[in-house]
Design a protein around this nucleic acid. Structure first.
Length: 269
DNA sequence: AGTGAGACCCGAACGC
DNA sequence: TGCGTTCGGGTCTCAC
């Protein structure tokens, strides 16, 4: 599931590859993915140069020389592949963007989108998002303040993009596991010590996931051994029934308002 | 304010 | 092989 670490992995890989390069062709197979009539979308993009690939929460931002921005959200199951006309995946690509002989394929964009925006429109779109958990200005003090404003269930808050952005279903469970705190705990019942631990685990888990290339099935390019490196390092997510790496008891799989929740009910409290 | 339900969307995986 | 069916899950909106 593309969350902060997966998008950050893509950002890094994309910046190295297409940063500074000009778009030579585009192909839109699914018009709903974009926000403009295809000819207008194409007209603005063709010949335009990518000045910077940036990330905000689970969004990827392709800044263009024209000062437009391509805003990507992969939602569920979206993923990217960087190859060529020969080197591509045998999967449907909703959009492709070419840089001479290199092609960026956008796959699995069912609910996901790739919107071409002005900087003003971009600010408006990103405005409702909560703070970035890894932003240096996001301190334990700030985190504690945020938690004081919330009263519901911990996991619900962690995945609330308006409250704190970038964390989704997978990492909320991983963070809670690392902190040895149940994701179903009520926020007001958390002790100062637990909040401190949660903050620390949030930093540690997200940084580790970024370092190992996130939780992602398909590779980003041929011979890519980075993307998806965190798949095997997940401790609870999608591991229902497997033994807990910390205590050996079986990981439980539950539901919380239509969301899957994975936790070790033995060593998480 | 928090919670839950429903809609969105459709390719891939699965079953026969 | 091929057709039909099922499923996933972030986000938004709306009702309670």
């Amino acid at each position: 599931m593309p969350e902060l670490p997966e998008m950050e992995t893509y950002r890094r890989l994309l910046q190295e590859r297409i940063g500074g390069r000009s778009i030579t062709a585009t192909l839109v197979q699914r018009e709903k993915t974009i926000n403009l009539p295809p000819n207008e979308w194409n007209r603005i993009l063709l010949g335009n140069r990518i000045t910077l690939v940036d990330r905000r929460a689970k969004h990827l931002l392709f800044h263009l020389e024209s000062s437009h921005v391509l805003l990507l959200h992969l939602m569920l199951g979206g993923f990217l592949y960087y190859g060529s006309t020969e080197d591509k995946l045998d999967r449907t690509a909703q959009v492709t963007i070419s840089f001479d002989d290199h092609i960026l394929y956008f796959h699995g964009l069912r609910l996901g989108y790739l919107h071409l925006l002005t900087t003003w429109q971009l600010d408006e779109r990103l405005d409702p998002l909560g703070p970035e958990p890894l932003d240096p200005s996001f301190t334990l003090t700030r985190f504690t303040e945020l938690l004081t404003e919330k009263r519901g269930i911990l996991k619900t808050a962690l995945v609330d993009q308006h409250w704190l952005s970038g964390i989704g279903n997978c990492y909320s469970d991983e963070i809670c596991f690392d902190a040895a705190i149940l994701p179903t705990r009520r926020i007001p019942e958390l002790t100062d010590e637990e909040i401190k631990q949660l903050f620390h685990s949030m930093q540690a888990v997200l940084k580790e996931a970024i370092q190992f290339g996130g939780y992602m099935e398909p590779p980003f390019y041929r011979d890519d051994d980075l993307t998806g490196g965190f798949n095997d390092r997940c401790r609870v997510y999608d591991r229902g029934g497997e033994p807990c790496v910390r205590c050996g008891k079986l990981i439980s799989k539950g539901k919380l308002s239509s969301r899957k929740v994975f936790a070790c009910t033995n060593c998480q409290h």
